[in-house]
């Protein structure tokens, strides 16, 4: 269970084909696995290893370095409240206390209905809009206790499903390189010459 589906295996091969070395596709494929199951399963890591030419231990070695990969189920919505300086200066500690109270879990915990996991996050590159948070990596800015409550109520009632996908899906739009337009990736050792356009002449 939880190896890539046929469609995802096809997509995985397309992604691998963009890189000079297959192993470079490791992180994108881990995201794909997380999108399929909501977290990264052992079987998915075995499958990724087969696809990129690495052992499953190597895949896990890479995956475990990165915060976004989860190895057991989390809530449908991952609520990440930023606690770094700019947000802290604007009251993120109080927001976190409020969130714990509203959700009835401590930071790091998941609600008993499996809807929400609450996490402390680091700077989300939205410091001017502090305090801020992300739900499955979708932003909410200048969050107040009231706006937090209505966010949670909206999520619980299923009113934001169009904007916020379930945990695992990050980008809803992916790159596709059309076969007739792409240059194609080649292993570095098969190139020795300077690119054609470095001939001292204008390309146009």
């Amino acid at each position: 269970m939880s190896r890539f589906t046929e469609d995802n295996a096809r997509l995985a091969k397309e992604i691998i084909g963009r890189y000079p070395r297959p192993r470079s596709a490791m992180i994108p494929l881990l995201h794909l696995a997380q999108q399929q199951s909501g977290y990264v399963t052992n079987d998915a890591m075995v499958h990724i290893g087969e696809l990129v030419g690495a052992t499953s231990a190597e895949v896990y070695g890479t995956a475990s370095f990165y915060e976004m990969f989860k190895f057991e189920p989390v809530g449908k919505y991952l609520v990440n409240i930023c606690g770094t300086m700019s947000c802290a200066l604007m009251g993120s500690e109080e927001l976190m206390h409020h969130a714990e109270h509203k959700l009835g879990v401590k930071v790091g915990g998941t609600t008993s209905d499996g809807m929400f996991t609450l996490e402390h996050a680091e700077c989300q590159a939205a410091c001017t809009e502090a305090p801020c948070l992300q739900v499955n990596y979708r932003y909410r800015f200048r969050v107040t206790p009231e706006s937090f409550d209505s966010l949670i109520d909206d999520l619980s009632a299923g009113r934001l499903t169009a904007e916020i996908p379930d945990h695992g899906t990050v980008a809803k739009v992916l790159q596709h390189i059309p076969a007739d337009r792409g240059v194609g990736a080649v292993p570095p050792e098969s190139v020795t010459e300077a690119p054609e356009w470095l001939n001292g002449k204008a390309a146009l």
Binding site: E67, I177, R181
Partner: peptide, 25 residues
Amino acid sequence: GYVGKNILGSNFSVDIVLHWGAGAY
């Protein structure tokens, strides 16, 4: 035709591959 093979009809060809991270400062 702005990215990929023979950009703007010239001999300049390059792929841009979107890659994404997974959380590590």
